[in-house]
């Protein structure tokens, strides 16, 4: 397998995608909603719209489930500070696992299923590109753009949180910090790779794009579970958990890719499109 051949598939697909606003639009809009609009409403609107902080008093019950050291830290803060600190640094973190999944879901579901729909698959399968090169190329074409979107979303998210924290914490910028950098550059790519790998496998084994997208939508549920688990205090995105996630998902990435290559049988893939 050569990376250059996998990149060949990547560039071919990327050229097609970049000319399709119907794909690019949702890819950008949904992540920006999570990374900019929603945080801006939560962090900036209370001060901009003069909402009294007493309105946020009932958040105390959510903070009850936080680890003891964090609870001790926020006990010294005002309501507004604690809200920005906890939501900005912790509760929004799992959303950044969903962003690459959302950004890549259309591309990954389209990888092989789209070629079947557009009847371009047979010529691609007839080339001497190996199964590994085809699989990797199709994974990369979902992975690279979705990570770029995630980085863009992260940059904007940092700006929103920092605008809020700058005024509230007396000139302190909360993001980026080491934990978030580990999340964005460690956990997010490994989670995205696993989800994309599974979606590409599904895409190669179904008849068309719609079927692939419907099946791959299921992948968001475990991440949603993580969000609710964090809100409920069952899990907490601390350093140990991040290291565990990186190791666990890296191993899963390798397994998913291995399974994908093993299941990649040109005849089956082509015949399923008939």
């Amino acid at each position: 397998m050569t990376l250059s051949n996998a990149m060949l598939v990547f560039w071919k697909d990327w050229r097609e995608i970049s000319r399709n606003m119907q794909v690019l639009g949702p890819m950008l809009v949904v992540p920006l909603l999570f990374a900019v609009v929603l945080p801006a409403i939560i962090f900036l609107s209370p001060s901009l719209m003069n909402v009294p902080m007493s309105q946020f008093g009932n958040l105390g019950s959510i903070f009850e489930s936080l680890p003891a050291d964090l609870k001790a830290l926020i006990s010294t803060m005002t309501v507004q500070q604690s809200m920005i600190y906890v939501f900005g640094l912790y509760f929004f973190a799992p959303f950044f696992l969903i962003i690459p999944l959302m950004a890549s879901s259309v591309l990954a579901a389209d990888s092989f299923a789209g070629e079947k729909d557009r009847k371009t698959l047979e010529a691609l399968l007839a080339t001497p590109l190996t199964n590994r090169e085809l699989m990797l190329g199709k994974i990369l074409v979902s992975f690279i753009p979705s990570m770029l979107v995630t980085l863009l979303a992260f940059t904007l998210y940092c700006a929103v949180v920092d605008i809020a924290s700058f005024g509230t914490f007396g000139g302190i910028l909360l993001l980026p910090n080491a934990l978030w950098l580990a999340l964005i550059f460690g956990v997010t790519p490994t989670v995205a790779l696993a989800a994309i790998g599974i979606t590409v496998i599904v895409s190669s084994r179904v008849k068309g794009f719609r079927e692939a997208q419907q099946l791959s939508a299921i992948l968001v549920f475990p991440i949603l579970g993580l969000i609710f688990a964090q809100i409920g205090g069952v899990v907490f995105f601390g350093p140990l958990m991040l290291i565990g996630l990186v190791i666990g998902f890296s191993a899963l990435d390798v397994v998913v890719f291995w399974i994908g290559v093993k299941l990649f049988r040109r005849e089956e893939i082509l015949m399923r499109s008939v």
Partner: peptide, 30 residues
């Protein structure tokens, strides 16, 4: 695969790409 060229039942062309881009991709793939 390296030794054959195939015109499939359908043209199997990437419609959002130009002829030059289509041919370049397949030349490199081969």
């Amino acid at each position: 695969r390296r030794s054959v060229g195939i015109l499939t039942e359908n043209p199997s062309l990437y419609e959002k790409l130009t002829p030059v881009e289509n041919l370049k991709f397949f030349a490199q793939a081969y």
